[in-house]
Design a protein around this nucleic acid. Structure first.
Ligand SMILES: [Mn+2]
Ligand SMILES: [Mn+2]
Ligand SMILES: [Zn+2]
Ligand SMILES: [Zn+2]
Lengths: 129, 129
DNA sequence: TCTTTGATGAGAATCATTCCCATGAAGGTC
DNA sequence: GACCTTCATGGGAATGATTCTCATCAAAGA
């Protein structure tokens, strides 16, 4: 028998919230939504399941200004994010020119095993009214 | 009388450590160095002075993988960093193309007040041997 | 139904950072 | 130098997100 993650009520509940969300949200925000809905899920369990999903590359995470980790279900493949710092609404964006720039700069200075982090923050049109 | 920051022994000590450092270091690492040297400076004071320097744009800060904030005295003007994930050695880099890309992408989606974070991590030539 | 074992959750623990506030010491004035 | 005003310091408490512990629960298969 192949090991398989158990399909618990709590795991489904966390997944359902992520499906409904537009933008990034913190573990505690997701927990609050669950509590408000009446779904009883422990905070530890929310953290645990979010981490499972990150490890499975089903969810992207990034750190907000205040250091809180934010989560969002994203499409597969390398991309970056344009995030509204007020409402969290997020657009996935690609930047081939940026990828090339990062690799070139790293090579010029003799760096190998290169990776990069890039996020764009702003105020979305709705929040800017 | 114009308000002016007081030139304390502790402030000079923190500044001296930053002058000697090549790469990014955490507040606690800087505090440890001070203690090892025999300079008596409180941890709160290290945090406070680092924050003063960040506000004065004399020091750049970024968040490491583990969420710790790292500090480094940097040149003025907008730039990014190529950081060795082994030894911390850091190269300041500029990417005009990246700046334009970020602004354009944000504008295309109606975002205002745009800012971005971009760091490149790798293994430097010395550490890659 | 029964067994096995990963999953859950309430609270404790961790850890970086910030806050509090009594005390210290810059730096100006005479 | 003596004195004053006020910002700076530092030790410990508080904060807050996240992780850990472990007794208990419940998937999933037999
Ligand atoms: Mn990229
Ligand atoms: Mn830039
Ligand atoms: Zn918004
Ligand atoms: Zn290195």
């Amino acid at each position: 028998m192949v090991e398989t993650a158990r399909n618990t009520r709590q795991r489904r509940a966390v997944g359902a919230i992520l499906d409904d969300l537009d933008g990034f949200a913190s573990a505690q925000e997701i927990h609050d939504i669950l509590v408000r809905r009446g779904d009883k899920v422990g905070l530890s369990t929310v953290y645990r399941n979010l981490q499972y999903l990150v490890d499975a590359a089903e969810v992207d995470s990034l750190r907000g200004d205040d250091g809180e980790v934010l989560y969002r279900r994203c499409s597969a493949g390398h991309h970056h994010h344009l995030v509204c710092r007020d409402c969290g609404r997020t657009v996935e964006v690609e930047g081939p020119a940026v990828e090339k720039w990062a690799d070139r700069v790293a090579a010029e200075h003799g760096f190998s095993d290169v990776a990069h982090t890039l996020e764009v923050f702003g105020t979305c049109s709705e929040c800017g009214a």
